[in-house]
Design a protein around this nucleic acid. Structure first.
Lengths: 115, 115
DNA sequence: GCCCTTGGTTAGTGGCAACTTACCGTTCGT
DNA sequence: ACGAACGGTAAGTTGCCACTAACCAAGGGC
Protein backbone atom coordinates (compact mmCIF):
# COMPACT_ATOMS: atom_id res chain seq x y z
CA UNK A 1 0.00 0.00 0.00
CA UNK A 2 2.41 2.66 1.19
CA UNK A 3 4.99 0.88 -0.92
CA UNK A 4 2.80 1.54 -3.93
CA UNK A 5 2.50 5.21 -3.05
CA UNK A 6 6.22 5.38 -2.42
CA UNK A 7 7.06 5.66 -6.09
CA UNK A 8 6.92 9.16 -7.61
CA UNK A 9 5.81 8.09 -11.08
CA UNK A 10 3.01 6.04 -9.57
CA UNK A 11 1.87 9.16 -7.76
CA UNK A 12 2.02 11.05 -11.05
CA UNK A 13 -0.15 8.37 -12.62
CA UNK A 14 -2.66 8.65 -9.78
CA UNK A 15 -2.58 12.41 -10.03
CA UNK A 16 -3.19 12.22 -13.76
CA UNK A 17 -6.15 9.91 -13.23
CA UNK A 18 -7.43 12.20 -10.53
CA UNK A 19 -7.25 15.31 -12.70
CA UNK A 20 -8.39 13.84 -15.98
CA UNK A 21 -10.75 11.13 -14.81
CA UNK A 22 -10.81 7.58 -16.22
CA UNK A 23 -8.26 7.03 -18.93
CA UNK A 24 -6.77 4.40 -21.23
CA UNK A 25 -3.25 3.09 -20.88
CA UNK A 26 -1.92 4.73 -24.04
CA UNK A 27 -3.44 8.08 -23.18
CA UNK A 28 -1.88 7.78 -19.79
CA UNK A 29 1.47 6.97 -21.37
CA UNK A 30 1.14 10.13 -23.43
CA UNK A 31 0.83 12.28 -20.34
CA UNK A 32 3.42 10.66 -18.13
CA UNK A 33 7.06 10.83 -19.28
CA UNK A 34 7.59 7.10 -19.25
CA UNK A 35 7.09 4.23 -21.69
CA UNK A 36 3.80 2.39 -22.03
CA UNK A 37 5.05 -0.90 -20.58
CA UNK A 38 6.23 0.96 -17.51
CA UNK A 39 2.75 2.41 -17.15
CA UNK A 40 1.28 -1.07 -17.39
CA UNK A 41 3.57 -2.36 -14.67
CA UNK A 42 2.75 0.54 -12.40
CA UNK A 43 -0.95 0.10 -12.99
CA UNK A 44 -0.56 -3.53 -12.04
CA UNK A 45 0.99 -2.53 -8.73
CA UNK A 46 -1.62 0.14 -8.11
CA UNK A 47 -4.36 -2.33 -8.92
CA UNK A 48 -2.93 -4.95 -6.57
CA UNK A 49 -3.38 -2.66 -3.58
CA UNK A 50 -6.79 -1.42 -4.66
CA UNK A 51 -5.84 2.10 -5.61
CA UNK A 52 -7.01 1.61 -9.19
CA UNK A 53 -9.57 -0.38 -11.11
CA UNK A 54 -9.73 -1.14 -14.78
CA UNK A 55 -12.44 -2.02 -17.17
CA UNK A 56 -11.96 -3.56 -20.60
CA UNK A 57 -13.54 -1.70 -23.47
CA UNK A 58 -12.69 -3.38 -26.72
CA UNK A 59 -8.94 -3.44 -27.01
CA UNK A 60 -8.69 -0.55 -24.62
CA UNK A 61 -8.38 -0.82 -20.88
CA UNK A 62 -9.84 2.11 -19.06
CA UNK A 63 -8.30 2.75 -15.65
CA UNK A 64 -9.77 4.82 -12.88
CA UNK A 65 -9.06 5.59 -9.28
CA UNK A 66 -10.69 3.25 -6.80
CA UNK A 67 -11.38 4.14 -3.22
CA UNK A 68 -10.54 0.86 -1.55
CA UNK A 69 -6.85 1.61 -1.26
CA UNK A 70 -7.37 5.15 -0.10
CA UNK A 71 -9.85 4.03 2.53
CA UNK A 72 -7.34 1.53 3.75
CA UNK A 73 -4.75 4.27 4.02
CA UNK A 74 -7.15 6.45 5.94
CA UNK A 75 -7.95 3.63 8.34
CA UNK A 76 -4.26 2.96 8.89
CA UNK A 77 -3.70 6.62 9.54
CA UNK A 78 -6.55 6.90 12.04
CA UNK A 79 -5.55 3.78 13.91
CA UNK A 80 -1.92 4.81 13.96
CA UNK A 81 -2.89 8.12 15.44
CA UNK A 82 -5.18 6.74 18.11
CA UNK A 83 -2.72 4.10 19.16
CA UNK A 84 0.13 6.58 19.23
CA UNK A 85 -1.78 8.87 21.58
CA UNK A 86 -2.73 5.97 23.79
CA UNK A 87 0.82 4.68 23.89
CA UNK A 88 2.01 8.14 24.77
CA UNK A 89 -0.47 8.37 27.62
CA UNK A 90 0.80 5.01 28.83
CA UNK A 91 4.30 6.33 28.68
CA UNK A 92 3.41 9.31 30.79
CA UNK A 93 1.58 7.05 33.23
CA UNK A 94 4.56 4.71 33.45
CA UNK A 95 6.95 7.48 34.35
CA UNK A 96 4.59 9.25 36.69
CA UNK A 97 5.38 7.15 39.77
CA UNK A 98 9.02 8.10 39.50
CA UNK A 99 8.17 11.46 40.95
CA UNK A 100 10.43 12.08 43.91
CA UNK A 101 8.38 11.53 47.08
CA UNK A 102 7.76 14.68 49.07
CA UNK A 103 8.88 16.88 46.23
CA UNK A 104 6.09 16.66 43.63
CA UNK A 105 7.69 19.12 41.26
CA UNK A 106 10.93 17.22 40.99
CA UNK A 107 10.62 14.61 38.31
CA UNK A 108 12.81 12.11 36.59
CA UNK A 109 14.21 13.13 33.28
CA UNK A 110 12.00 10.89 31.25
CA UNK A 111 8.73 12.52 32.09
CA UNK A 112 9.65 15.93 30.87
CA UNK A 113 8.53 16.43 27.33
CA UNK A 114 8.57 19.29 24.85
CA UNK A 115 12.02 20.95 25.08
CA UNK B 1 6.62 12.39 2.74
CA UNK B 2 5.15 9.34 1.05
CA UNK B 3 8.69 8.57 -0.03
CA UNK B 4 9.62 8.45 3.64
CA UNK B 5 6.76 6.07 4.39
CA UNK B 6 7.64 3.98 1.38
CA UNK B 7 10.46 2.19 3.15
CA UNK B 8 9.47 -0.83 5.28
CA UNK B 9 12.15 -0.41 7.94
CA UNK B 10 11.18 3.21 8.36
CA UNK B 11 7.64 2.05 9.00
CA UNK B 12 8.97 -0.44 11.54
CA UNK B 13 10.81 2.38 13.27
CA UNK B 14 7.66 4.46 13.38
CA UNK B 15 5.68 1.49 14.63
CA UNK B 16 8.25 0.88 17.36
CA UNK B 17 8.08 4.50 18.44
CA UNK B 18 4.31 4.30 18.36
CA UNK B 19 4.15 1.21 20.54
CA UNK B 20 6.93 2.02 22.96
CA UNK B 21 6.75 5.77 23.12
CA UNK B 22 9.78 8.08 22.98
CA UNK B 23 13.03 6.23 22.66
CA UNK B 24 16.78 6.70 22.22
CA UNK B 25 18.63 5.72 19.06
CA UNK B 26 20.48 2.77 20.57
CA UNK B 27 17.36 1.38 22.17
CA UNK B 28 15.66 1.69 18.83
CA UNK B 29 18.56 -0.10 17.17
CA UNK B 30 18.09 -2.91 19.66
CA UNK B 31 14.51 -3.45 18.60
CA UNK B 32 14.84 -3.07 14.87
CA UNK B 33 16.97 -5.64 13.02
CA UNK B 34 19.31 -3.12 11.46
CA UNK B 35 22.53 -1.38 12.44
CA UNK B 36 22.58 1.82 14.45
CA UNK B 37 23.88 4.03 11.62
CA UNK B 38 21.02 2.83 9.47
CA UNK B 39 18.62 3.88 12.21
CA UNK B 40 20.23 7.30 12.33
CA UNK B 41 19.88 7.75 8.60
CA UNK B 42 16.27 6.70 8.67
CA UNK B 43 15.53 9.01 11.56
CA UNK B 44 17.10 11.81 9.58
CA UNK B 45 14.73 11.15 6.71
CA UNK B 46 11.74 10.80 9.01
CA UNK B 47 12.68 14.04 10.74
CA UNK B 48 13.06 15.89 7.45
CA UNK B 49 9.41 15.30 6.60
CA UNK B 50 8.15 16.02 10.10
CA UNK B 51 7.20 12.51 11.08
CA UNK B 52 9.59 12.49 14.02
CA UNK B 53 11.15 14.93 16.44
CA UNK B 54 14.20 14.50 18.60
CA UNK B 55 15.39 16.04 21.79
CA UNK B 56 18.94 15.92 23.09
CA UNK B 57 19.36 14.60 26.59
CA UNK B 58 23.04 14.45 27.44
CA UNK B 59 24.69 12.20 24.90
CA UNK B 60 21.36 10.57 24.14
CA UNK B 61 18.92 11.69 21.52
CA UNK B 62 15.35 10.85 22.34
CA UNK B 63 13.12 10.45 19.33
CA UNK B 64 9.36 10.56 19.29
CA UNK B 65 6.59 10.63 16.76
CA UNK B 66 5.54 14.08 15.67
CA UNK B 67 2.18 14.84 14.20
CA UNK B 68 3.19 17.37 11.55
CA UNK B 69 3.98 14.76 8.93
CA UNK B 70 0.88 12.72 9.67
CA UNK B 71 -1.31 15.81 9.48
CA UNK B 72 0.23 16.60 6.15
CA UNK B 73 -0.55 13.11 4.95
CA UNK B 74 -4.13 13.41 6.14
CA UNK B 75 -4.53 16.74 4.37
CA UNK B 76 -3.12 15.29 1.18
CA UNK B 77 -5.50 12.38 1.48
CA UNK B 78 -8.55 14.58 2.06
CA UNK B 79 -7.69 16.92 -0.79
CA UNK B 80 -6.95 14.05 -3.11
CA UNK B 81 -10.30 12.55 -2.28
CA UNK B 82 -12.28 15.71 -2.72
CA UNK B 83 -10.60 16.60 -5.99
CA UNK B 84 -11.00 13.09 -7.30
CA UNK B 85 -14.73 13.13 -6.67
CA UNK B 86 -15.03 16.55 -8.25
CA UNK B 87 -13.00 15.51 -11.27
CA UNK B 88 -15.18 12.44 -11.60
CA UNK B 89 -18.31 14.57 -11.51
CA UNK B 90 -16.80 16.72 -14.23
CA UNK B 91 -16.11 13.64 -16.24
CA UNK B 92 -19.71 12.54 -15.97
CA UNK B 93 -20.87 16.02 -16.88
CA UNK B 94 -18.57 16.10 -19.90
CA UNK B 95 -19.92 12.84 -21.26
CA UNK B 96 -23.51 13.59 -20.39
CA UNK B 97 -24.33 15.47 -23.61
CA UNK B 98 -23.49 12.38 -25.57
CA UNK B 99 -26.75 10.87 -24.48
CA UNK B 100 -28.68 9.75 -27.52
CA UNK B 101 -31.42 12.34 -28.12
CA UNK B 102 -34.91 11.04 -27.58
CA UNK B 103 -33.67 7.99 -25.75
CA UNK B 104 -32.46 9.21 -22.36
CA UNK B 105 -31.65 5.75 -21.11
CA UNK B 106 -29.35 4.95 -23.99
CA UNK B 107 -25.92 6.27 -23.22
CA UNK B 108 -22.50 6.23 -24.78
CA UNK B 109 -20.17 3.64 -23.46
CA UNK B 110 -18.02 6.11 -21.58
CA UNK B 111 -20.63 7.17 -19.09
CA UNK B 112 -21.31 3.75 -17.77
CA UNK B 113 -19.36 2.99 -14.67
CA UNK B 114 -19.16 0.04 -12.32
CA UNK B 115 -19.40 -3.01 -14.56
C1' DG C 1 42.47 13.96 33.81
C1' DC C 2 40.80 9.47 31.22
C1' DC C 3 37.62 6.23 29.25
C1' DC C 4 33.28 4.62 27.99
C1' DT C 5 28.88 5.54 26.00
C1' DT C 6 26.09 7.68 22.57
C1' DG C 7 25.22 9.01 18.04
C1' DG C 8 25.89 11.52 13.62
C1' DT C 9 28.70 11.17 9.21
C1' DT C 10 31.38 9.19 5.41
C1' DA C 11 32.81 5.83 2.08
C1' DG C 12 31.86 1.79 -0.18
C1' DT C 13 28.99 -2.20 -1.55
C1' DG C 14 24.97 -5.05 -2.84
C1' DG C 15 20.43 -5.77 -4.17
C1' DC C 16 16.20 -4.43 -5.79
C1' DA C 17 13.05 -2.11 -8.68
C1' DA C 18 12.06 1.10 -12.36
C1' DC C 19 12.75 1.43 -17.06
C1' DT C 20 13.32 0.08 -22.08
C1' DT C 21 13.27 -3.04 -25.94
C1' DA C 22 11.23 -6.82 -28.03
C1' DC C 23 7.55 -10.04 -28.50
C1' DC C 24 2.86 -11.83 -28.59
C1' DG C 25 -2.19 -12.24 -28.06
C1' DT C 26 -6.70 -9.60 -28.91
C1' DT C 27 -9.85 -6.74 -30.99
C1' DC C 28 -11.48 -3.31 -34.29
C1' DG C 29 -11.79 -1.38 -38.98
C1' DT C 30 -11.96 -2.08 -43.84
C1' DA D 1 -9.22 -11.96 -43.95
C1' DC D 2 -5.51 -8.73 -43.30
C1' DG D 3 -3.35 -4.90 -41.07
C1' DA D 4 -3.23 -1.70 -37.40
C1' DA D 5 -4.05 -0.26 -32.67
C1' DC D 6 -4.03 -1.48 -27.94
C1' DG D 7 -1.96 -3.49 -24.08
C1' DG D 8 0.11 -7.12 -21.10
C1' DT D 9 4.50 -9.87 -20.37
C1' DA D 10 9.55 -11.32 -20.56
C1' DA D 11 14.25 -10.37 -20.59
C1' DG D 12 17.92 -7.41 -19.69
C1' DT D 13 20.18 -3.08 -18.00
C1' DT D 14 20.92 0.70 -14.98
C1' DG D 15 20.59 3.67 -11.30
C1' DC D 16 19.39 4.50 -6.78
C1' DC D 17 19.05 3.55 -1.93
C1' DA D 18 19.35 0.77 2.16
C1' DC D 19 22.90 -1.17 4.70
C1' DT D 20 27.52 -1.93 6.97
C1' DA D 21 32.12 -0.74 8.56
C1' DA D 22 35.08 2.73 10.08
C1' DC D 23 35.82 7.19 11.84
C1' DC D 24 34.95 11.19 14.61
C1' DA D 25 32.82 14.46 18.05
C1' DA D 26 30.53 15.36 22.43
C1' DG D 27 29.02 14.18 27.40
C1' DG D 28 28.99 11.74 31.62
C1' DG D 29 31.04 9.02 35.30
C1' DC D 30 34.98 7.68 37.90
Amino acid sequence: MLDALGDPTRRVILETLRRGGPCSVSTLAGQVPVSRPAISQHLKVLGAVGLVRHESRGTRNIYRIHRTGLDELRDWLDQFWGDALEAYADHIRRTEDRTVPGRPDVRTEEERDEH
